[in-house]
Amino acid sequence: MEKETKNFDRKIEHIMNENSVAPPFGMWNRISSELESEALPIAAAAPLALIPKRAMFGFIAGVAVIGLSLITAYVVNNSTKQLETGKPITSIAETSPSVAKVVPSTTTNVVLEKANHIQVAKVKTVASKTTQQEARAAIEPSNNDRFGNNTDVPVPNQAIASNQTIGSYYFPPVDIVNTKSTETTEEIAVVTANQLAKQEEKLGDKKGKISATSSSEKRIKLKKHRRSGFTYGSLNRLNKHKTN
């Protein structure tokens, strides 16, 4: 019995595997059209998928830029405030206590202040008038005595008063006694005032004449004439009726 069933199975298998049926005409077109229809949505979806990525990238970049600018602005604002107040930066003081020692306190370190003051005075004495002149004479040649050591702009040396200190900026003394220039200006001013008065008198006469013979009145008259003389056109038909 088992042998019979095995023979049956083997024969069926043989018949089924030996034979084949050709698919109907047009099956390949169906398959290829399905493959194309699957490929098209993928191609169409590609840009759509890219746009959000780009948008997201742009959004993230924008947020990052804005955030960085805000942070920098905050940091700069804080640092400027601290500089204005003159207080040491707390963070530095916290992190490095040695820096805090460098900043002098106005109330306690009086000795230090004095020492600094003495040092400044020493510097000023070095740049005294006599030493400066001596140094200049030693360095510069004799024909260039008029000009200073500054090679950028030839500025004449100013005479420095004996009581002035070199350390501070020196304003040259203004010679108020010398009145030569002011006298000349006063004379010129008087001459010009007289000339102006004469010219005005002349001009006044001319103005009267000009006003008498000016063409502005004529123009006004012409305008009046034109205004009064302007008439609308009359209809001949109405005149005819009147005559009749």
């Binding site: 089924m16 084949s20 099956m27 390949w28």
Partner: peptide
Amino acid sequence: ERKFQQMLYNTLSAKMFSVCLR
């Protein structure tokens, strides 16, 4: 490549269609 896909179809379609019919 569609050309090779069609070649594969032409080679195996008859055998596979008989499988499908079974």
